[in-house]
């Protein structure tokens, strides 16, 4: 290590050695070094040990959260993958996926990057909404009521996320899409422009309607879908989860399929790269019909990244089988 990138403890500023995991002076944990050169600061090249626990590089100050470039979870009947977009310094998407008894709870959130702490907001919303959904799911309670209550819980959780600065107008906020699946019944709830799709053999259906400027323009007959999407305001969302949003009930849709299929939850990082009707389904047309949820999630994220995804991409895939039905 050269003297130029001298390392200091992010807590007390005592000098550190490249391999230190804890500060000799104050004992603070230091982001651990990795042999993987990819963990070096992408801006100034300082080693991973130069990154403080709050994500800021202690040499150039640029924020990049350690280890969050790609996160994967495979629960066999359901799987999720989240990858940081090419132009982002940190992944501001978050997901929470749980198998509860014979059911599945999934929540996908996209932190709003022009607000403070978007990543923390998405994390808080996904975790709190999933926790609030899993018990009613297990106890056989009504899934629509449970979904509305879970979104309110997410609002409260994001409300408690501290903004890193006291900026009254840019409070932490995020989008949210949730799925509660039990006995072949699926309840999807959403706020903002993260989406849910229903994929069956050879068919794709979007289950959600974006809370966005573009969607509202089209719905009001003011523009065609192409004109609206070309506008710079297209992605401005009209509803979100956060302290400065009214805690309205989420939009809900209920699905009780007769045949098996895959439920896909995703952030706009995926559908930006596959905007047309049927585009998501065509991305996985190459896969075997019995591909696992994990294989589908990987494939969708890889395809979005290959198309140069600027934004963070998060995909959750859940196998849905009607009672008595066969595997898809």
């Amino acid at each position: 290590m050269s003297g130029e990138v001298a390392l200091r403890c992010p807590a007390c500023e005592a000098p550190l050695l490249a391999d230190d995991r804890f500060c000799e002076a104050c004992g603070a944990a230091v982001a651990t070094a990795s042999a993987d050169a990819g963990d070096a600061c992408r801006t100034c090249g300082a080693p991973a040990t130069a990154r403080g626990p709050d994500g800021y590089c202690t040499v150039c100050g640029v924020r990049e959260l350690a280890g969050a470039r790609r996160v994967e979870l495979d629960l066999t009947v359901a799987a999720a993958v989240s990858e940081q977009g090419r132009t982002h310094r940190r992944n501001e998407d978050a997901f929470c996926l749980e198998v509860v008894g014979a059911g599945v709870v999934a929540v996908v959130c996209d932190g709003i990057s022009t607000a403070a702490s978007g990543d923390a907001a998405a994390r808080a919303a996904a975790d709190s909404a999933a926790a609030a959904l899993s018990r009613p799911l297990d106890e056989g309670a009504d899934l629509r009521t449970a979904t509305a209550a879970a979104v309110l819980t997410a609002h409260e959780a994001v409300h408690r996320v501290p903004a890193t600065t006291k900026n009254a107008l840019a409070l932490p906020s995020c989008t949210l899409v949730s799925a509660a699946c039990r006995d072949g019944e699926v309840v999807v709830g959403w706020v903002g422009d993260s989406r849910a799709y229903w994929l069956t053999a050879g068919d794709e259906r979007q289950l959600t309607v974006d809370d966005s400027w573009a969607t509202e323009q089209v719905a009001d007959g003011l523009m065609s879908a192409e004109e609206a999407l070309a506008d710079r305001r297209a992605h401005a969302i009209t509803r979100w989860v956060g302290a400065d949003a009214p805690p309205e009930a989420p939009q809900l849709t209920v699905l009780a399929p007769a045949a098996p299929g895959r439920l896909v939850l995703c952030t706009d990082g995926l559908w930006n790269e596959a905007p047309g009707p049927g585009d998501i389904g065509s991305l996985i047309a190459d896969l075997e019909p019995d591909a696992t949820p994990a294989a589908i999630a990987h494939h969708l994220v890889d395809a979005a990244m290959a198309r140069g995804a600027r934004d963070d991409v998060t995909v959750a895939v859940i196998d849905i089988r009607p009672p008595g039905g066969r595997a898809p």
Partner: peptide, 24 residues
């Protein structure tokens, strides 16, 4: 979209760093 820590302010008493504030 980039975020940079422009300043990390702390107070030092008897050589001990006792509080921190971030300027972003």
């Amino acid at each position: 979209g980039d975020e940079v820590l422009a300043g990390r302010l702390s107070l030092v008493v008897d050589g001990q760093v006792i509080t921190q504030a971030l300027v972003r």
